[in-house]
């Protein structure tokens, strides 16, 4: 727990608050010190923790991979090169499996999505209180270390994917083809409003479901970590009950963390696969 004695709901709220930078009510620019302040900042504010952590992780991924790419040779691969090639081959195989058209952008896109989301999700496995505690000691009021528990991050990516889907739909089928796809099926041209409604929902559902699935999973996982941590934190004195609570916190965090490794990887993989599938659909004449 971070410093002062907090109630359970305060503790939870504290953990779920981003470090937001924006215009304060008094007109100056600064960091919000409460959820209400952050809310009042409106749209033109930025979550520093999400932005910085996700940038650092993305840069780490690209640094490691591009270094390996530069040093790579066709001979016997060693160490990091082996690891990088393993991931690249895995992505390449899975993209070849679900993407039938020819587009040199899709595989690197899939790799970036998978690696970046995986790294961001893995932040969830760090002990939940350590980084916020260190940040608090350094004078930073809030710190949410898992960028994918911030809908801004997941929607940011899914909007990028959505733009690509629309772009390639128009590029492959022409503007007329894309509009036709939205309005002329499944009921033919006389059911145009109904068609537009159905296909519109279909189209909009893609980025929203992508973003909300990842956000929901990671947010729920984070929440359970918080609750487990709360349980252990509720011990007051050295007694049998407290020891039991503390022990069960250790056991439950371990169990949930191990289970969470699966979710972390699976969510990254699902986001990647669905992106590839949506882009494949964008490249198809009929679907």
């Amino acid at each position: 727990m971070s410093g002062e004695t907090l109630t359970s709901s305060e503790y939870i709220r504290h953990h779920l608050q981003n470090l937001t930078f924006g215009k304060l009510p008094d007109g100056s620019w600064g960091i919000a010190h409460s959820a209400e302040q952050a809310k009042e900042m409106g749209f033109w504010a930025i979550n520093l923790d999400t932005t910085i952590v996700s940038f650092v992780l993305g840069a780490l991924f690209l640094f490691v991979f591009s270094r390996a790419a530069q040093k790579a040779s066709a001979g016997v691969p060693t160490g990091i090169q082996n690891f990088v090639e393993w991931i690249v081959e895995f992505i390449d195989t899975s993209v070849r499996g679900s993407f039938t058209a020819r587009n040199d952008m899709v595989a690197p896109l899939a790799l970036t999505i998978f690696a970046w989301i995986l790294l961001m999700n893995l932040m969830d496995l760090l002990p939940i209180d350590y980084l916020p505690l260190i940040a608090h000691a350094a004078g930073i009021p809030f710190l949410k270390v898992v960028p994918t528990t911030d809908p801004n991050a997941t929607f940011g990516m899914s909007i990028g994917v959505f733009v690509l889907v629309v772009f390639y739909s128009i590029k492959m089928k022409g503007l007329g083809g894309f509009v036709g796809e939205l309005t002329l099926q499944p009921f033919g041209k006389f059911g145009m409003p109904a068609n537009l409604f159905l296909e519109g929902v279909n189209l909009i559902a893609k980025p929203i479901s992508l973003a909300l699935r990842l956000f929901g999973n990671m947010y729920a996982g984070e929440m359970i970590f918080i609750l487990i941590a709360l349980m252990g934190a509720s011990w007051a004195s050295v007694s049998f009950g407290s020891t039991l609570l503390f022990g069960s916190q250790v056991v439950l965090s371990l169990g949930w963390a191990i289970f969470h490794i699966l979710i972390v990887t699976l969510q990254a993989f699902i986001f990647m696969t669905l992106t590839v599938v949506y882009l494949d659909m964008a490249h198809q004449e009929h679907h």
Partner: peptide
């Protein structure tokens, strides 16, 4: 947990990362 300009930042970052990956990694 508000939607704010972070969204735009994340999208831009995402596009840049993909571009970098496509250009120098893959």
């Amino acid at each position: 947990m508000n939607i704010n300009a972070t969204l735009l930042g994340q999208t831009i970052m995402f596009i840049l990362f993909v571009w970098f990956c496509m250009r120098f990694v893959w």
